[in-house]
Amino acid sequence: MKPIEAKNINVYYGDNHVLKDIDITIKENTVTAFIGPSGCGKSTFLRTLNRMNDYIDSFRKKGKIYIDGKDIYDKKVRVEELRRKVGMVFQKPNPFPKSIFENVAYGLKIHGIKSKYEINDTVEKSLKQAALWNEVKDKLDKPALSLSGGQQQRLCIARTLAVKPSIILMDEPASALDPISTAKIEELIFELKEKYTIVIVTHNMQQASRISDRTAFFYLGELVEYGKTSELFTNPRNKQTENYITGRFG
């Protein structure tokens, strides 16, 4: 089974051609890192995978993306269902201005789960999975905004896990955090890949090499190189990749 398969993806914002002929297949239960300089299209591509670009008026796309074998841009696909399956964690922690509990329970409620028992149980499991349970179990009704930045981001991950996705997209999830919080998030990603397929956009090449199994290097809207992380970092096939990972531009 191939969880994510993109064929010939071209994306335009108005007249701007921001992604060019992207072909990529992402494997199950792996961590795939997207790297590349700012504006190279890696975040845009990540967002086409759960159709978060739909709300941008000037967005146009050509090509096909299949998730679990289904074309996600097909008219019959319900975007809400897709996003439940393909969760997303954002660059800056963005908890809702509600309690910790309500944040995690939100996704369950919008998807119509009413059983108190089920909600409580899932909230606890999700917070445990996100390695946050021990820190917050006594203050679940406290505002989420009272947590530290790193805790907020793990809360956002727990919130995503609560709706039981199979794929998690992460858009530079640690870029707004301090080194200790970053280490915790990385550890968490490493544990999560047993159960989930994870795609992470990062600016930080050490991070990519630490946590990912495979890495894709984007440059000027093109997928320049894609392969096993260990090979891509030690023995890049492409000159541009080499220049980027050795820090000659960025």
Partner: peptide
């Protein structure tokens, strides 16, 4: 970012508007 978080979990506009944005 709050709207995106909500959409990202599969909420409709209506749910996002009245459960996240309005509060």
């Amino acid at each position: 970012s709050l709207r995106e978080a909500s959409y990202g979990m599969g909420a409709t506009k209506f749910q996002t508007s009245f459960k996240v944005v309005v509060p």
